[in-house]
């Protein structure tokens, strides 16, 4: 039984967006780091990850309906 989450990839990460990002299946027990790796995101490149509007650590467990955002370092002015 899979659970589904919603994924938002910001800026340069947008090219990694899966077609089913709004209803993305993951195995139960998947953590933030697992999802990040499955999406092909370089962990060294992305420090700001949030789940349901709160900053998350890589080991946070994901659950049905979670909204996960990945935001790369942005420094322009």
């Amino acid at each position: 039984m899979r659970v589904h989450v919603q994924i938002k990839l910001f800026a340069s990460l947008g090219r990694l967006r899966p077609a089913n990002a709004d209803h993305y299946p993951i195995e139960p027990g998947t953590r933030v780091a697992g999802l990040r790796d499955a999406l092909g995101i370089d962990p060294a490149q992305v420090k700001l990850i949030f789940v349901n509007g709160v900053r998350a650590e890589a080991d946070q467990l994901l659950k049905e309906g979670d909204r996960i955002g990945f935001f790369p370092p942005v420094g322009g002015g």
Partner: peptide, 16 residues
């Protein structure tokens, strides 16, 4: 909390 405590790069993705 946004950039991490050690930034390896001087610019962000705006460089691209």
């Amino acid at each position: 909390a946004i950039y991490g405590d050690a930034t390896g790069s001087t610019t962000g993705v705006e460089a691209h």
